[in-house]
Design a protein around this nucleic acid. Structure first.
Lengths: 364, 364
DNA sequence: GCAGAAATTTGGAACGTTACAAAATAGGTA
DNA sequence: TACCTATTTTGTAACGTTCCAAATTTCTGC
């Protein structure tokens, strides 16, 4: 209408070229460009080509913000992970990504570093950016009351962990059953003084695993001894930290079920450093079966949680809800596998637990 | 103007409440709400409180898409990482996050799994979502021609790796110098047949490290022998794969500088499995100094690259450019440290290299 | 060559936000 | 009280996109 703009580019002044610029260049209306963008079959092949070409030469970039304004779905799934320095969660994140990819969603990861404040920021930010849904592995000590309003109206799947007061879909391993089987294995190998090491009582996951541990004791008529339970950080250092108390028990423990592999490895290293022959004198079973468990000396027995599968299932559930529009909470429990290696010392006398898997030495 | 809407909520029908709903509820105009949102000092304290309260009760969520439409900056930094299953890059990612946090930016991570196609998708998606800048650790084999147009007009820092034809800011370790010092250490310990293991010639990082290796040989007047150079995948398996050829050399090698720690550990395990006493019979030095290097048996000597610092510096640079609006490419090289442990067997006879650090046994 | 159908294309009018200029209100002072 | 200055508040016009109804073009069969 008014004077025509400067030669090439014809950008909308902000540097970024718009759908209108493209339309101009291709000699069509912006509606047509929009149609091309959405892959509509209405537009004629020749036109489509002309438009596509114009987009390429102008370096057009789709402005998703403008689109969501009109109600378009963003195609982004937010994944909020508590601790990416833990290889277990990394593995889970990879599973999440894989599943997103097949569903044509793009995952944006945020690492909360177990910091509830940061988690709040990050969830809000994802929300503001129009994420279609969230996969959440919540930080420890998350204040549910503050988090909840940020999640309303969008599908959320809590994976691996779950918050006490937050009613969303959940994908988690069968923690209780896994811990029960691991403990039963130790018992069947002759242990009766079995410690439970790692985590804090406030963690729901620990509650589950701990419950499995107690259940196995109960089933074997072994009295529960609270002095065998050690709360500690869930990292290498945490595992190492309990050694002084563990070795100073009046009635010594002969084995330990650890909250996770990282704790188990920390414990194993510290015990070895203080002269205890792990595997022969002391049995250890971890939880999660991270990659490293295969490479420690002795190799660590562990309750295998398929982290990748966990992530994958979570996204599949989320995508299903997204597709159906029905966000009704749903819970999926994934089975675990007891993997017997050298650290529990008793591979030979392994009981007839059909669900246990003893790894061949040559497997590595 | 027309009939008033239904009681509570008064949402804009899409479920999400808007600035207008808030304004209505607080009895002010939407302009005022916008002012409150941006923390302007123009608005009276009483009004601000009323508005804030209205936002809380309505569960208002800021629509960043609408804001960017008006030219607002998004406050998001995209971080595109080639491989999050590699602990080195995870550590770097954590550094990136930390730095983002202090700068009040929110990082969104995307893992490209070394897949250039996925990388393209992910970069485009970040762009579409209005990321203010990008920290990029590019995937191997990235087609620069396709990537370049997606990056125009936004500040980008390549970290750790760099693409041959892509002119952006760069933050990288002093690869050449680190490799030179590590090789010199092996030479000073009496080795003359030193292999270079891992990576492919197309990787710029490997070119740098390889150049340092050759420089050290040259400085010691040791002729270069191409049969000592092994190209292989940069993972555990890659390191293990070279053992057959390595042990079948006419003139055997007595030591190896590896492209990175993961390769070195793979090599170490495979050598140990075939009966070679690493540390005594064969010296190995890795690169990156990942956490695991401290825990292998024997402990792995390595050229320490401070991954976290690398990430931090990259973001700092990016934020500086974002603040100044000057996106002129800049290169930052971070120094490396040679960490001598047991795997190169010669800690005792360590040369007078003032920059080398020999780790005390008690350090662990 | 024409009506009717089918295939394409096209103007707006939103969507939720911000910036700007202008309006309203409050606070002093003569 | 009337006037001037600060202090607050508010319409209005974008921003780049999609959607819908309506307009235009291209095909059919006669």
């Amino acid at each position: 209408m008014n004077a025509r703009m400067d030669g090439q580019g014809t950008k909308g002044r902000g540097g970024r070229s718009t759908i209108v610029d493209v339309a101009h260049r291709a000699g069509v209306s912006k509606s047509t460009v929009s149609l091309v963008l959405s892959g509509s079959s209405l537009v004629a092949e020749a036109t489509r080509e002309r438009v596509t070409e114009a987009m390429a030469t102008l370096g057009y970039i789709y402005h998703r913000g403008a689109a969501t304004l009109r109600g378009a779905k963003s195609g982004v799934i937010g994944m909020v992970i508590n601790d990416l320095s833990n290889p277990f969660f990394v593995e889970m994140a990879i599973g999440i990504e894989e599943a997103c990819q097949v569903g044509a969603y793009i995952p944006f990861i945020a690492n909360t570093v177990e910091n509830p404040v940061r988690q709040l920021q990050v969830v809000r930010s994802m929300r503001e950016h129009g994420a279609a849904g969230l996969v959440l592995s919540p930080a420890l000590g998350t204040p549910v009351a503050e988090l909840k309003p940020l999640l309303s109206g969008m599908p959320v799947v809590q994976v691996m962990r779950r918050l006490a007061g937050l009613k969303t879909s959940i994908v988690a391993p069968e923690n209780k059953d896994g811990a029960r089987r691991a403990t039963a294995h130790l018992i069947a190998s002759g242990h009766r003084r079995i410690a439970f090491v790692g985590g804090f009582d406030s963690m729901v996951v620990r509650q589950d695993r701990f419950a499995g541990y107690r259940l196995a004791l109960e089933e074997a008529d072994i009295p529960f001894d609270a002095s065998l339970v050690f709360e500690t950080m869930t990292n290498y250092a945490g595992g190492g930290a309990v050694v002084p108390q563990l070795t100073n028990l009046r009635e010594p423990a002969t084995a330990a079920l650890c909250f996770n592999d990282v704790v188990a490895i920390g414990l194993m290293r510290a015990l070895a450093a203080s002269g205890v022959a792990v595997g022969r004198e002391f049995g250890i079973i971890g939880f999660d079966d991270i990659e490293e468990a295969r490479h420690t000396v002795p190799a660590l027995s562990s309750v295998a949680v398929n982290a990748r599968a966990l992530g994958t299932r979570a996204v599949q559930l989320l995508m299903r809800q997204l597709a159906s529009g029905d966000f009704e909470p749903e819970t999926i429990l994934c089975p675990t596998t007891l993997v017997i290696r050298a650290s529990c010392g008793t591979a030979l006398s392994a009981p007839s637990n059909s669900e246990a898997r003893t790894e061949a030495k040559s497997k590595d």
